[in-house]
Design a protein around this nucleic acid. Sequence first.
DNA 1: AATTGTTTGTCAATTAATTAACTAATTGTA
DNA 2: TACAATTAGTTAATTAATTGACAAACAATT
Lengths: 208, 208
Amino acid sequence: MANNKVSMAVIRRLPKYHRYLKEMLENGINRISSKELSDIIGFTASQIRQDLINFGGFGQQGYGYNVEDLYNEIGQILGLVKTYNTIIIGAGNLGQALANFNFGSHGFKLEGMFDINPKVTGLRIRDIEIMDMDLLEEEIKNKNIDIAFICTNKDAAQSVADDLVKFGVKAIWNFTPVDLKINNGEIIVENVHLIDSLLTLSYFLKEK
Amino acid sequence: MANNKVSMAVIRRLPKYHRYLKEMLENGINRISSKELSDIIGFTASQIRQDLINFGGFGQQGYGYNVEDLYNEIGQILGLVKTYNTIIIGAGNLGQALANFNFGSHGFKLEGMFDINPKVTGLRIRDIEIMDMDLLEEEIKNKNIDIAFICTNKDAAQSVADDLVKFGVKAIWNFTPVDLKINNGEIIVENVHLIDSLLTLSYFLKEK
DNA sequence: AATTGTTTGTCAATTAATTAACTAATTGTA
DNA sequence: TACAATTAGTTAATTAATTGACAAACAATT
């Protein structure tokens, strides 16, 4: 199971494999070749084999891949074997929407929500209390929080991120239209820049 | 202003340029070199020049780029010169969150929201009525809808997409964890696969 | 058991994307 | 006005990513 520098392009395809394999598993398909997978998922068969080889290769010549095994392997590669503790910072519409997404079923347990607005602090979303930001440090440390979702407005994002890092969070899922400056190279930052996505759509729409 | 096949990598960087240039403009910076921009935005100076050359090149040797001009040019490239009419399908937590995002300020005017759930139809979010899906065809045609945001559950996504295409929508912004099958090659589909993003984060978290 | 067909893993070839080097235009200054 | 400094545009070199080809391994069949 080699692991010297897997490219970002490959990594970003893994969740899609995982998604499709799960579906196949649910449909009772227990064997698949790279060619068949190619037809379904839209990557070339060669690319699929190359991608999987990055992590050791899980197939068998003349047979293909066992769907369940491959699903489990990719799950493992994606770190879906343990549960991560998460919190949401900013309990506005987006924060509340994410709280209701139930990422818990994928192994991401929501442990708390935070906001500065006294109109929402004290409320509960899906049994999770919205707490004041004053409690952030304590909660991160007590509950051993791994991942924080930043759903504040863009002006608050950087200072919130600084606090999160200071208090020991390991990864940030950033929903604000800001590129966070994080000095600590150990901290993972994953952005969901909705406006960038919409502008990309707009680009292609204009091209027509 | 050449335009023979700009690569996806370049296109997906454009919104970031646009974002940073806007910020500079607001800060009263009116001139910038590729080197300075590189320090701020994190792409190499060479890449920045290469990117811009795809669209004709807007700089001047010995001077750099005029921030306002470049901002406007990129805005134009991204199609931000006209207003697009949008609707949201699925008025659950996410749909409501997106309605409150106010993409109108970027030229994306929200013209309606739709849901099948009678508990939410009739309600208003930011002065936009949540309508029953029965009215979808009529509204798309009357209001000349360009873009639909799909925020339904994943099981409804494909059939909603089929209807949207049939009724004349030009682009779909898909928030469901499904890869929509659209035959009509003229239709733009832009995905926001939140779970894929979270699993990518998870991958890097596991790597540490 | 032998043979045919399938399919991965591997390696090579190709294509795409990024980075570096260079040239010529322009700015700013003495 | 002349000259040094700056900097985009351009071309070339490098690196990365994708695709194609094929041998070895295995499965299925006779």
